[in-house]
């Protein structure tokens, strides 16, 4: 039985975040394809009735409607991860760190995500300004990840992946779509690789699978 419904646009990094989390948790769900571009269906009256903010994704389960991506990750982990590893809420410090990264994820969406929409779909924003913001966010992210490298750690919080990693992953990974390459960001590159190596990882256009992890017929 399907456990929730995702109103989905395949090229959206935020929609992908939810698909990725569900895949990593092995959760089955239904999708409703929304014509974000060029149809702007997310701003149609039926969609606005469901989500007055006019954004995607939207997650519905029973009578619940979630419209904030980071909240969806928290809900998925709380509901479907009995180990509590993906969303560790017991320790106040750990919990604070996870929630802190969810805020960072929102800033990445607002900067890298906006720069990407401008580059790919000619979104009506100041392209140079959002690109500058996005570069600053990525530099800040690289700095914090480098601290994790110094501490001998791979993941954003603790010693295993959490919703913090999944929340930040898509727009960092997709930044080359906005012309922001990962060349000068070694800590980001290695963390992206770690996320892509997770069992059950799924792809989206712009984020391909790691062929070297598949059983090859040759080599």
């Amino acid at each position: 039985m399907s456990s929730f419904t995702l109103y989905n646009y395949v090229l959206s990094g935020n929609c992908y975040k939810v698909r990725l989390m569900a895949a990593l948790l092995g959760v089955e769900y239904d999708t409703v394809a929304v014509d974000f571009y060029p149809g702007f269906e997310h701003r149609s009256e039926p969609m606005l009735a469901l989500n007055p903010s006019g954004t995607l994704p939207i997650l519905t389960a029973d009578d619940m409607v979630l419209t904030e991506t980071q909240a969806m990750l928290g809900w998925l982990a709380a509901k479907f991860d009995p180990t509590g590893r993906w969303y560790p809420a017991d320790d106040p410090v750990v919990s604070g760190e996870v929630l802190q990264w969810l805020g960072v994820a929102s800033r990445l969406t607002g900067s890298v995500g906006a720069a990407r929409l401008h580059a790919m779909l000619d979104w009506p924003v100041d392209g140079e300004a959002v690109r500058k913001d996005a570069l600053k966010e990525l530099q800040g992210f690289e700095l914090l990840l480098t601290d994790r490298v110094f501490a001998g750690q791979t993941w954003l919080v603790g010693d295993h992946p959490t919703i913090a990693d999944i929340a930040c992953f898509p727009y960092v990974a997709l930044s080359p779509d906005a012309g922001l390459e990962h060349d000068g960001f070694p800590a980001i590159r290695n963390w992206l690789y770690a996320v892509r190596s997770l069992p059950g990882f799924v792809t989206m256009p712009g984020i391909h699978q790691l062929h070297e992890l598949r059983e090859g017929a040759h080599g």
Binding site: H208, L210, H211, E212, G216, H218, G219
Partner: peptide
């Protein structure tokens, strides 16, 4: 991506060894 001691091109999967020589064309 790396396969053993060769680098494989993502496009058509041609493999190149450390000497830069093509070793395999899928």
């Amino acid at each position: 991506f790396v396969r053993g001691n060769t680098l494989a091109c993502l496009y058509h999967g041609w493999h190149y060894n450390g000497a830069g020589t093509c070793t395999y064309i899928p």
